[in-house]
Design a protein around this nucleic acid. Structure first.
Lengths: 189, 189
DNA sequence: GGTAGTAGCCTAGCTCTCCTAGGCAAACGA
DNA sequence: TCGTTTGCCTAGGAGAGCTAGGCTACTACC
């Protein structure tokens, strides 16, 4: 009988696509198998289990996002870089809600260490070069930035801002202004 | 046969407890029924479906958190209030990871409107009284604050800060300093 | 070019979850 | 006391996750 040509890469890409359409929690081994025209049991030859599949989506998303951010950051510095980073981050999350949600599942330490998450951290630090912060302020600032981006994007997605009419785009750009201001004048201990 | 004395309130509390121990995604109608010594089908007399159960956990958590924040806020103003709010928020999330995760599922508009989420928004606005911001800056600042809190707490939980040795407690308090600073000197357009 | 070996798929079948339909008994209100 | 409601039951179907074991197509090597 003809082989379907299933590979882990093709499975992961299809699963990521499915996640964006129906949500990660609804990405199932069975549904994926149906899409490839094979039986679900066959996928366990390529996949360890259902969780493994979701981890792969997360790693794919992490890498894709890192690529986007890197491209957005090229040739920019200071506030320009901050805004470019933030917008690349938010745009990706909005275009790929399922992939973004998958990024939030916690990876075990060694998987996380091998992921593109490290590149993110490095790029975030790179932005701070324009703001002249030294350790440990730099780490604190990186964490605050990441928190703000992630928090905003995730609240926006789950409708946490819905009870106020103000356009979220406006709040977003003002939040970036505020972030730039506080990075410029980082309070000393 | 003797009645087990199951009520929606008891179910919700038990489910919230279970969520904190094994994660919301593992809170199942079947497991809950086992804990109450009844058959899973019986719970559908009290619950609409599995999603309904999770929504109830979320609403319970929202109300509990609002109570905590209100207590923390009493008699405080300015940065003092900001820090108290933030710590109450973070402490709750750390003590009740499952409940906190449940809060993130998106409620349909009318459920959200009837939830304690509104009280949160009001209390967040109350903090800003100490910082003299007028609209629309106030809304933007509320959104930024909420983003920072939620983002930090959620990244801390999923291990997003793990690759840097600096204690997250230190970054947290410095982030609050930074937030206070930017609220005090909110950049004008 | 024959032949191991392995990669890629299959069927069968188990367990678990969610949920519906329909039934019966305990508690309660008139 | 006698319906009526409330709270639980059994039975069962659909779908998900996963394992065991088998067959076949491809590949590598002598």
């Amino acid at each position: 009988m003809a082989r379907a040509g299933v590979t882990v890469e093709r499975l992961t890409r299809a699963a990521a696509e499915m996640a964006d359409q129906v949500g990660v929690e609804n990405v199932t081994v069975a549904a994926l198998a149906r899409q490839f025209g094979v039986k679900d049991a066959s996928l366990y030859f390529h996949l360890k289990n259902a969780h493994d599949l979701r981890v792969r989506i997360a790693l794919l998303a992490l890498a894709e996002l890192a690529d986007r951010v890197a491209a957005a950051l090229a040739g920019r510095a200071g506030k320009d870089a901050l805004v470019a980073f933030a917008n690349a981050y938010r745009d990706y999350a909005r275009e790929h809600p399922g992939r973004y949600a998958a990024m939030q599942i916690d990876l075990d330490p060694e998987t996380a260490a091998a992921s593109a998450g490290i590149r993110h951290a490095e790029m975030t630090r790179a932005i701070l070069r324009g703001y002249r912060l030294s350790e440990p302020d730099q780490t604190d600032a990186v964490r605050m930035m990441h928190s703000t981006f992630h928090g905003f994007v995730s609240l926006e997605r789950t409708g946490g801002f819905r009870h106020t009419p103000r356009p979220t785009d406006d709040s977003w750009s003002r939040t970036l202004d505020a972030l730039d201001a506080v990075l410029t004048n980082w309070p000393s201990r």
